Computed example of a mutant assay.
Amino acid sequence: MTEPSNDLSIGQVAGRTGLSVHTLRLYEREGLFTTEVRRTATGRRVYGQADLDWLEVCTKFRASGMPLESIRRFAALVKAGSGNEKERLELLRAHQCRIERQVAELNDCLALIAGKVATYEQHVDAGTAADLWTGIGPRA
């Protein structure tokens, strides 16, 4: 008796990851996988659990704004195997710093918006909201 295959088609991977078939092909063309995408005898792409795990990492990298070039570099380092951990760490630290700056900027924006919401809530509750927007100064 043969064991059931854990191999997935590109359509199945698209369904599981939320990535489009087009994006999966792009990731392969761009060298963003840490291993070569396997093919069946008829040339169809075949993915395994390790591919799904890596795609989850890629998705988080992309969602956090990591450029494709950085993901490509990181994938190449992973493909190359051990001995380049310092370079991987430097790449991840640089991206972490970018995200931390973005989070700080967003927190500043959120604080400003929260202040505006509080001001508008006070004026709406008091029935004085009609003249809030003057387009100048802190009243806006």
Rank of each mutant, 00 (worst) to 15 (best):
M1K: 14
T2F: 08
E3T: 12
E3W: 04
E3C: 07
P4C: 05
S5Y: 03
N6S: 11
L8N: 01
S9K: 09
S9C: 06
I10T: 00
G11V: 04
A14C: 08
G15Q: 08
R16D: 08
R16M: 12
T17P: 00
G18S: 10
L19V: 01
L19N: 03
S20W: 02
S20L: 00
V21S: 06
V21D: 08
H22E: 15
L24D: 08
L24H: 06
R25N: 07
R25F: 05
L26P: 00
Y27S: 08
E30W: 00
G31T: 06
L32E: 12
L32I: 09
F33R: 11
F33L: 11
T34D: 02
T34R: 08
T35Q: 12
T35W: 05
T35C: 01
T35I: 08
R38Y: 05
R38A: 14
R38M: 09
R39T: 02
T40C: 02
V46D: 08
V46Q: 15
V46S: 14
V46W: 05
A50R: 15
L52S: 08
W54F: 04
V57L: 12
V57W: 09
T59L: 15
K60V: 12
K60D: 11
R62Y: 07
S64P: 00
L68A: 10
S70T: 03
I71Q: 12
R72S: 04
R73K: 15
F74D: 05
A75Q: 11
A75P: 06
K79P: 00
A80Y: 10
G81H: 09
G81T: 05
S82C: 05
S82R: 15
G83H: 08
N84R: 14
E85K: 10
E85A: 11
K86C: 02
K86F: 00
E87C: 03
R88I: 02
L89T: 11
L89K: 13
E90T: 03
E90A: 11
L91Y: 05
L91Q: 01
R93M: 07
A94L: 04
H95V: 01
H95N: 01
Q96P: 03
C97L: 13
C97V: 14
C97N: 12
E100G: 01
E100Q: 12
R101F: 00
Q102I: 00
V103D: 07
E105T: 07
L106N: 14
L106T: 13
L106P: 01
D108K: 11
C109T: 14
C109Q: 14
L110A: 12
L110W: 02
A111Y: 00
A111N: 13
A111C: 09
A111G: 09
L112E: 10
L112S: 06
L112K: 05
I113K: 13
A114K: 15
A114L: 08
G115H: 07
G115C: 03
K116Y: 03
V117M: 10
V117D: 04
V117G: 02
A118L: 06
Y120S: 08
Y120G: 04
Y120E: 06
E121P: 03
E121H: 12
Q122V: 00
Q122N: 13
H123G: 10
V124C: 10
D125K: 15
A126H: 03
G127Y: 05
T128W: 05
T128G: 06
A129M: 13
A129E: 15
A130Q: 14
D131H: 05
L132E: 14
T134Q: 04
I136K: 15
I136A: 13
G137T: 12
G137P: 07
P138D: 10
P138V: 04
P138E: 14
A140W: 08
